[in-house]
Amino acid sequence: MIREQSRFTINPLYVVAVAMCTICQYVNTLQQGLLFGLLTAVICLLCTNLVSLVEKIADKNLRAFLITMLTAVIIVILEYVFELLNWEILTENLDSIKWIIIAVTALSIVPTYFETRLTTRHYFINMFFSVISFFVLIVVYSVIIEVLGFGSIFGYALFGNFGGFVFAGQLYFKLFVIALLIILTNFIYQAVEDRKMRFDLLVEKYKLNIKQVLNERDGKGGTL
């Protein structure tokens, strides 16, 4: 029953792709990838789990609004904290972290619109996998962009004087990298889903076979 409830009715990778699209313009290095990935992941988990507490009294649209509002509040607080801390990596990205609001709104669509009547634990587990896949993909994406765009990784030059390709910093290339990453992960995801489906069909087939054998042995009264 739990497995039936927690199965996605939308491919979660598409949501991850859309979330990545909204922040990809501001992620050019691995540092930025880690910062944006971590912030999005933590805020998304926190907000969706908090809003899951009012799941029974708020409809899906209201829950989506509450998640967005909570995220906005956290982002405003973070902006003040980052300003106070005055670290270079944080102050550099001070004006762009607001885009995390849209990434979180996109990621929260899965539990808000496709998972109804679930407990906080289910929300957490479902969101955890979405958020982890988002984090891994954004880190891989930022590594590709930094290596191709700057010829370095974490600020360390990889290929001597090679300063990177100009096109790697352009929007079209970033979208292209996201599309390729999503196609690759979707290939793996679909293969796993197909395997799961084949396994479920096999189990059903064996159940029918056992039922048939029992019926033949005990007459028509045999049950599984």
Partner: peptide
């Protein structure tokens, strides 16, 4: 192919459109 549709191919189209507009 279902691996490409609909969101991945949309992002690819966006990428090509962005390239043309650029």
């Amino acid at each position: 192919s279902r691996i490409f549709r609909p969101v991945p191919i949309t992002i690819l189209t966006m990428s090509i459109m962005a390239m043309i507009i650029y």
